[in-house]
Structure formats: C-alpha cells, structure tokens
Amino acid sequence: MEKAIVTKDLTKRFGDFIATDAITFEVERGEIFGFLGANGAGKTTAMRMLCGLLKPSSGQATVAGYDIFTQTDRVKKNIGYMSQKFSLYEDLTVRENIRFYGGIYGLGRRQIKLKTEQLLEKLQITREADQLVSSLPLGWKQKLAFSIAILHDPSIVFLDEPTGGVDPITRRQFWDLIYEAAHQQVTVFVTTHYMDEAEYCDRISMMVDGRIKALDTPRRLKAQFGADSMNGVFLQLARQQNISNQ
C-alpha cells in the first residue's frame, strides 16, 4: 500500500541557517506519527513544507502520494490541519465554523448539513450548536477543532501541539478521537514538545537541531535509551547532543 508521507533528504535553508537538515522518514497510512523536538528544533519548518506552505531547498517528499514541490494544490486538498494557537473562529458559532470550513474545502451544501449533524451528535454538542465558540470550554474547542480538521475526509491530518493545558480526562477524550480517526485509516501527524503526549503515538521521531536523532516506537525508544518515559528519552538525547557539541 502507498505510504502517507515519504521524505528523502528534505532540507530547508534560511540563508546560512539550516532549519531542517536532510530529514528522511516514511509514515504509513493510518499511523499516528509523533514529530517531537524542542522549540526551534525545526519541527514547524518541516511541517510547513509537508503542508505545501514552504518550498524545500532540496530533497524530495510526497504527501498522500503528491509531490510537495510541484503538486502543492493537490497536497492541500488532501490534508487537514489543526493548531492549538488558531483553529476556530471564536466569534462564529459552532455551526458557522463547521459550515465555513466545509465551504473552503468545497463540500456541497447538503453534504455539509449531513456532516454537521453527524459531528454535533458525535461530540454531543447538538444543544450548543448555535453558541459562539468563545463560550465553549477549552477541551470542547479542541475536540471540535479536530473534528472540523477531518471534516473533508483528508487522508492525512497535521496536528500542531494539539492538547496543551486541558485536564487529563478531556485530553484522553481528545486522544480517543485521534485513535478513532487513525482506525479509519486517517494518518495523524502530531508535532509537539510535550513529551508525555508523545507516549500516545505509534511511532515517534525526535528532532534535534534540524536533524532526526531517533525514530521508533515509544516502547523501543525507551528500551534503547534505558528511560522509563519519553521525557527521559529526550533528556538522554539532549545530553548526547551536548557532549557532541563540546
């Protein structure tokens, strides 16, 4: 079966600065792929290239089977995107947000109507459908934002630090949604610097200074670095990096 994401030596330079340095990895369909690293490690740059927002300096990559150099329009049609910083319009109602995003992805009116009802039902927010998004609790907003990001049935959804700051139960409900989407063969690409969030991914890549320093399942990474959490793995990696810098 075709891979969801394939990159080979993908590189982005900003002047002298190399933001991502020849990264190579593959993501399977239906996989939850964690893309980890500290702030400034190059996660955002890599993700922007994969979303077709930024032209790579060199290397190759396909997303959902489309070339990110030449077919950015196709790429954009086949991906969903959610970020913690911005995803929903706070001054629109739940229903208006759904209609808006359905509209920009070219869904028909009847389809939007049908999907809206399904989505409201699934999140159990039918009663709040005509409330402004700003009045919803943070956890609900996140779940709604994710559901909207996959409204147009993309084959890949990019999540940029999706679950900061919510309570542990809400956070798990959010991850339940992610598992469900992955189960339906949606590939989930999560960038985060919250290491505990990484534990929920199928596989994880750890970026340090523009390069992928480790890539495996959480279990094997923990075994490899002799750590009991992803936090420990990260600390080990950072220590290695410091030693090699000196």
Binding site: G164, F234, A238
Partner: peptide, 10 residues
C-alpha cells in the same frame, strides 16, 4: 514550566 522543553523543565 509550561511550554518549555524537558531539559529546561528539569
């Protein structure tokens, strides 16, 4: 420590 990488948190 919110939004800070694990090394800095530690």
């Amino acid at each position: 420590t919110t939004g800070v990488d694990p090394v800095s948190r530690k």
